[in-house]
Write a protein that binds this DNA or RNA. Structure first.
Lengths: 363, 363
DNA sequence: CTGTTAGCGCTTTCAT
DNA sequence: ATGAAAGCGCTAACAG
């Protein structure tokens, strides 16, 4: 480990004072102004000598860390995560010279540990995804900690970024109605009763219901626990009195329903139309590609970062208004009369041959 | 923003010196020893007053940041990421009171920006996933920077953690042979020629080839660019002279092959056996669940963290030996004669009803 | 426009 | 076992 090159060394090299060098390196509001020429000279020297600012040292005096937390509030090891959130946040942070620290609920044997991330001061703000499932223990910490928290994919009056799922579900249902379907179910798998854990569950049901009412159709909402309720599920959804179409709560549910249908000898979209929600990996890679509602995760994360800046920059002017995105209808094979529309094939051509082959190839 | 509670305030409160309090808060090697009773008293006061150590301040004198970088070297916005790596690393870091900073290749308009993450000193080490695709620009930075880098999912002599894909592919092939298949192809989709970008491509081909030779069977290796080579693909894999079984390079490829087969009127495993590799989301959620080779991503990340500690703790004793994991054969529906084995159904029951419903439900 | 100086919050060395 | 004091690398306030 070589001796660190400090700002002092730099000052000596260029024959300036510490303060001047500090300003030249990182020009900001100050009583001390440096000439453009000086800035160039100092920065050239910095490069030449391999100077790297010490993030910790600057955070002491400057009172900010240039660091935000990205808190993914999911427990255990989920099958997948919407990667658009983390990439969007990272890109936005990078653009503004912020770092992002990864935060998770601890799993494994340290399940109950409170992360150092919370004990120590090193964050200017935090962006939290899926806050709904947080332990109250964490909620307390967040309340008492003095940094701003922005909620991503969570519906709150302030400081949150989310999608209008009432509108989204309405549009999805309208799509199914326009396709000529009358008997349309809303189906959720996994939770015995439809519990109001995440806002999207209640909102999607509401949007679906409103659209059905507007069209003078009878809404039917079903929730099944799998595999315990496999019997009723197969009977009610794919038996004699089966619906013409199903709007699933999410793509994962839709994919599973598609699988059930297949084993019952029913094919989408000919025998039954099945629609997902989220436009995630399931809808795109499903054996029959799924019509779905696109959620702009990347843009939402960028918006979340903008809210972070708003909270940090102008100090002490209270909460920021929440930011609402509108999901976009994506029509694919699972609700189209023709198995794959031409448009869809075009899209596939673009997306299935990525610039970087490893993107898909590597685990 | 309330006034920060500092170690000074604490010292005043408990009537001790700064140094003593520092030791009591965080006992370590030092000439100054504190009584157990003192430690308790100080820590109680710290809790009472809401003291939170300033990560930046401690990093100056202590010369370490308690922070490691998690560098996911994928470009653009991939469809998914193996989440086991980041969770495993996070858990291990948490256990040792380390933070983890998220690092990515910048996408979007700041594509060519070098992240602040590299310019500033704030990391003790870095764990890098899929290093193979790095820009040389980054490679230079890594070479000259003075912190250790551990390579995850990359095969190197030192400082890397990876799986033995020669052995893995061999076992996968043997599984297919034991099922009675003679004509078995190795298939990769996406790259026109099989380019040696990631070690796993060459190694899986090697393992497959060796297993075939041992069984006195003729290895056939195919690579297709989709959709450009859709014609030859369909013809050679699912036409008149189709193989009895296919070992795909990865689960995503296998899932796609399954889809092609279906549209050609062929079903797995009756008409053709198709096997994946990686045991990722594709293999588990595919319409016909895929037999595959499990890669212990969580454990690999934990191992990577242990290597990080080895590199940091004992200073100046050179590189650490690489750590090799062995993939495990997972038999599912796509190669079994019976559509879904009983064992598989059992497994599904466990995994499809997670403790946390949001794990699956929420985007 | 530039130099000087006083810290920031913490750790570590040295003295007691 | 504890206190005193020096200093880590940097920024900000003040003086010129």
């Amino acid at each position: 480990m070589n001796k660190r090159v400090t700002i002092k060394d730099l000052a000596q090299e260029v024959g300036l004072s510490l303060g001047a060098v500090s300003q030249a390196l990182n020009p900001r509001e100050s009583t001390i102004k440096v000439r453009e020429e000086t800035i160039q000279r100092v920065q050239a020297a910095a490069r030449r000598m391999g100077y790297r600012p010490h993030a910790g040292a600057s955070s002491i005096r400057s009172k900010h860390f240039q660091n935000i937390g990205y808190f993914m509030a999911s427990t255990g090891i989920p099958d997948y995560e919407p990667v658009g959130y983390s990439i969007g946040l990272h890109d936005a942070a990078l653009e503004h010279n912020f770092r992002v620290t990864l935060i998770r609920l601890p799993s494994g044997k340290f399940k109950n540990a409170i992360s150092r991330v919370f004990r120590e001061a090193h964050l200017d703000a935090m962006v939290m995804v899926n806050a709904s499932i947080l332990f109250s223990e964490y909620k307390d910490i967040l309340q008492t900690s003095d940094f701003p928290v922005i909620y991503l994919n969570d519906k709150q009056d302030n400081n949150s970024v989310y999608t209008d799922d009432i509108l989204g579900a309405k549009r999805a249902t309208e799509h199914l109605i326009q396709r000529g379907h009358r008997s349309i179910y809303f189906v959720k798998i996994n939770n015995a009763p439809v519990v109001d854990l995440h806002y999207s569950i209640a909102d999607r049901i509401q949007g679906y219901t409103e659209a059905m009412h507007t069209a003078k159709l009878k809404p039917v909402i079903k929730a099944y626990t799998y595999p315990q309720q496999e019997g009723p599920l197969l009977d009610e959804l794919f038996g004699r009195d089966k619906p013409e179409a199903i709007l699933a709560y999410c793509d994962a549910d839709a994919a599973q329903l598609l699988k059930f249908a297949y084993h019952q000898g029913l094919h989408a979209p000919e025998d039954i139309a099945i629609m997902g929600y989220n436009d995630d990996i399931f809808s795109r890679h499903c054996w029959v590609t799924l019509s779905t509602m696109h959620i702009p995760t990347y843009d939402m994360a960028q918006a979340a970062f903008r809210m972070v800046l708003a909270q940090i920059d102008e100090n002490s002017n209270g909460p920021t208004d929440s930011c609402v995105f509108v999901p976009e209808l994506i029509v694919r094979a699972s609700t189209e009369r023709e198995k794959e529309t031409e448009k869809e094939k075009e899209r596939a051509k673009g997306s299935e041959l990525p610039l970087d082959p490893l993107q898909v190839a590597i685990l």
